[in-house]
Write a protein that binds this DNA or RNA. Sequence first.
DNA 1: ACTCTTGGAGTTTTT
DNA 2: CTCCAAGAGT
Length: 731
Amino acid sequence: MELLKGLNEKQKEAVLCCDRPLLILAGAGSGKTKVLTTKIAYIIENNLASKYEILAITFTNKAATEMKDRVSRLLKEDVSSLWIGTFHSICTRILRREISHIGYSNNFTIYDRTDQQSLVKEILKEKAIEVKSFQINGFLAAVSNAKNSGEGKFYIEDFYSNIPSARKYGEIYESYIQKMKEYNALDFDDLILKTLELFKENKDIAEKYSDRFKYVFVDEYQDTNKTQYELVRYFSKSHGNVCVVGDGDQSIYGWRGADISNILNFEKDFKKSDIVLLEENYRSTKNILDVANKVIKNNENRKDKALWTSKKGGDEVIYKRVSSDYEEASMVINWIEHMRYNDYKFDDMAILYRTNAQSRLFEEALMKAGINYHVVGGLKFYDRKEIKDLISYLKIIVNPSDNIALKRIINVPKRSIGNVTVNKIETAANNMSLSIYDYLLHGDIESMPVKTSKNLIKFRDIIENLKVEKENMPLTEFVEYTLEKTGYLHSLEESTLREDKTRIENLGAFISAIGDYETMTENATLEDYLSSVSLLSDVDKTEESSGVSLMTMHAAKGLEYKVVFLTGMEEGLFPSERSISERDGLEEERRLCYVGVTRAEEKLFITSSKTRRVFGRTTANKESRFIKEMQDTIKNESVKEDVEVNFRESYGESVENMKEDLKKNLLGTKKEPKSINKEQFQMSDKVKHKAFGIGTIISIKDESEGDEVIIAFDSKGVKKFKKSLAPITKA
DNA sequence: ACTCTTGGAGTTTTT
DNA sequence: CTCCAAGAGT
């Protein structure tokens, strides 16, 4: 059979087992995506089910798109009728059609973390509780646990009643639930929970979906939580054809409710099931796998297994402990430059770290070195003020009950509707059990001061007009119209602030994103677009961009790179301070380390720093215990003597000095980078750079003076390079 | 109502 | 260090 070509025996077995529950235990890099896509294609080709009878659940939307592409390539036909998506997007899709059965309306809004925070602040204000003294994020974590445990308020009272700072949790939780309902809004956990509720209360609907999907696939099964597990049960109830793929060693979302026992208990939960183990790794060299296996062996709560490869040893895994986080950054830059001239592309490299805050130094150093890069997660495009504002406008047009969205934009741009006025109409609306917007429509706003009521009416008329025009315009045109009609764009254009100029550009980028969505989606609606935006993961949000990738180890799950830098291996940072004392916390950190290591295909560099600046203060950290666990599988290139670091030195200077120092003992075994550029340049020369295009030389220094060239590019800004190495030619 | 200043808190990890 | 919220001043 054509499809099965190129699969090993175990993989074939997994593809061919189509008549019972199947658990595929797939180690990192063992080709599980290949198995999944082949299996789906196999089922379709052999008419075991048609395309719209298959449901596949992935961890990110990006993984979903990739899976669709691959199935489509295998079958050489269109597969858009397959249901492939994340738990959240699949649930949204179902709820948009069915949620009226459980008392919501189908234009519901999805609340992200920021929206949730706003809502809690609103509640605190009503209850006259100091916002400062209240741990909003702690409370939201409690809400999530309460919902995912299925016990609701009871859970909160049970768990938190003895903690003084959490005394009010139960009460606030009730308001939270009530307001979410009033605003016709669902948070991320609700998407799963409400779907479950829908199925529980409406047997016929549950059956409809279970009958419809003849085959159910779940990827990254080790990271499903209790409610998601129950949902899988519902989906597979009438046929039992459920195939889950996972790896207990890569379970890294326990803090989010993921329950590793889902995968450990699969055989018990699903009767007459089969298990296939995929242990052959096709991704990494043996040396890298040795490190991974050595570390993960220290976990007690796991099924013993070991990845193996038929590949040869490969290059040694290099470890280096340095004096400061600054030095760590310059160290990595040096390695990157060496790799670059050993024919690795920037696109093939990734810098991984434990917390987002660590990205900053790497970014600065990369920028300084003129190396193209992009950050996954961190400062998110969709979290920018202007994007959130625009989305709030769109939300209020779709769902006028959404008070949080309304309050965000009622005075943006300035309409002389201040806090006093907003408070007044909010209270009045609450008293009449209306949403704020409904109060603007039906309440008594004429009795307010003339100016105020005029302003309110003006605002209301803008929204009313938009609600009408929404039906008359294609999506993209409508969003542009919204930007104009609300005066939002105008106010930015008037501004002389430079950042407002970038805001306009960002809005432009957003518009073109909507344009893409519109061309790619049949019958694109604003409602669907808004939910898809809310459900994007960090990986999804990062457009296909070139250059070195920077991300947390969590975000790196499922990805792979030829060259990986694993940074910040220090006690207190990785493993994190909190996890060390938490039960099971340490083992989860170790799994995260395992995930990080197994991202690497050919080269792995590991760093740790003796000191690190946190909150502007320098702290000293011990070497991570994980490094000790790697003993004998890594090559320790740390400099024995302590290098004194003068922190008063400016960053730029210290990097330059470090670079000189480090160059000598860096990668001593590797060949010197070849000087690829012998051409002579001078000031004002027009040059063409491989990656950045045409630019003009604005500064140049010979090898004797520092070997440096600074180029102002026509479209990519000003960058600095090593003169002898820069991939430039005269233009 | 709007703008500017200041002081305090925050860093795990995220759909 | 950096971001946000509250408070004073206009």
